[in-house]
Amino acid sequence: MLGAPSYERDRCVTGIRGLDEILRGGIPYGSAILVSGTCGSGKTTLGMEFLMNGARSGEACAHFSATEPSVKLLENVRQFSFFDMSAVDQGLINVFDMDVLFSWLGLDKSTFNLDDIDAMVKAITDIVNTIGVTRLVIDSVTSLCYKVPNEQLIRDFLFKLGKSLSTLGCTTLLIAEITSVGGTAHRSAFGVEEAIADGIIVLGDVERMGHLLRYLQVVKMRGTDHSRAKYALELTRSGVMLTPMLKWGVSD
């Protein structure tokens, strides 16, 4: 009896050295991946490198910035040699400030109701659909969820957003901020984001003899095999670099 042909999902190649190997080729297309990390762990840089690599191959990319003004974001990312400002100038990478978007939608308030959430999801989806975005970063989804008053609404919000973006074939990185508690990082601020996301990439710090070393670990990735090892992450001028973390070098 013939075995069923093996099915390989199409991949969004991140272009980030080491990460595509960890993911056995890249992120499955249309996935919403939670990139969850403590402060200074390299989430924003990883997100921008992901977009820049897409822009280089002619993909339309978008970045929604909710935690820092886009002016500051672009100023900080320009120090990296992987980043080319002309991609922003030419509209290959579209950078949006969430507070400006909220202001345009009449959402400049501290708490969102269901209508507001629908408006926000619709706006993001509209933008993605209109300009044909195939790579999207929302930085950070945590600060958006702070405006949502309960867990159920957060779940609804993330589910609707993920579903809409997936339908449009857009691969999304949802940046999430977490705090490190007792040496073990939680994977999401509200606990629901990780359940909804198609994948979870955790960035954090490991302490070795008083020094903090950055690491990356793929905890979950639907639709593909992946490495679950911890990888040391270095932020170099040319972007993120990864290498397996020494097993004896991790103090719990």
């Binding site: 040699s81 070795r208 003899m209 020094h211 070393l213 040391a232 270095e234 170099t236 001028r237 040319s238 670099m241 990864l242 290498t243 973390m245 020494l246 070098g249």
Partner: peptide, 20 residues
């Protein structure tokens, strides 16, 4: 590199330099 205990950093920075 901040310290000789940051072994992975040494390797990654070496690779980074050589790539460029």
């Amino acid at each position: 590199v901040d310290s000789p205990i940051m072994l992975e950093s040494m390797l990654l920075r070496s690779l980074h330099y050589l790539e460029n």
